[in-house]
């Protein structure tokens, strides 16, 4: 798994790549929660996610809930097919804010 962040106009773009499984999801969770505590607007770029398991999804859920409480933005961007299928299984695609590209998310 690979996690990179960069800033774009005050919004933090977190790029996830590779396999997010039991082993890696705690570190994803930790990074996301830190951003949430700082009340940052966050875009999670999931284009390169080959696999995400339930614990990874759970970390996204927790971060998203916190963003809603803080009234900050938390958008999943360019979700890859494997990740999207897992989201759809639990109907979470209807819950998360999704965007097709980083540019579109930044504009919206």
């Amino acid at each position: 798994m690979n996690l990179k962040t960069h800033e774009n106009n005050g919004t933090v773009v977190v790029s996830l790549a590779g396999e997010i499984d039991l082993e890696h999801s705690p570190s994803v969770r930790k990074q996301l929660m830190e951003l949430m505590f700082d009340r940052r607007d966050v875009l999670v770029d999931m284009a390169q996610v080959a696999y995400i398991d339930s614990s990874g999804i759970a970390s996204l859920v927790e971060a998203y809930q916190m963003a809603r409480k803080n009234a900050t933005r938390f958008v999943l961007v360019a979700v890859s097919q494997p990740a999207l299928r897992v989201l759809q299984l639990a109907r979470l695609d209807k819950v998360f804010a999704l965007a097709d590209t980083v540019e579109a998310a930044l504009a919206g």
Binding site: P26, R29, S54, S55, I57, A58, S59, V61, A90, R91
Partner: peptide, 19 residues
């Protein structure tokens, strides 16, 4: 079997119940 956080375990559990 995992060292996941209690919150995460709770979310995963309820996620599976949703599924």
């Amino acid at each position: 079997h995992t060292k996941l956080d209690d919150t995460t375990i709770g979310i995963v559990t309820r996620l599976k119940l949703e599924v």
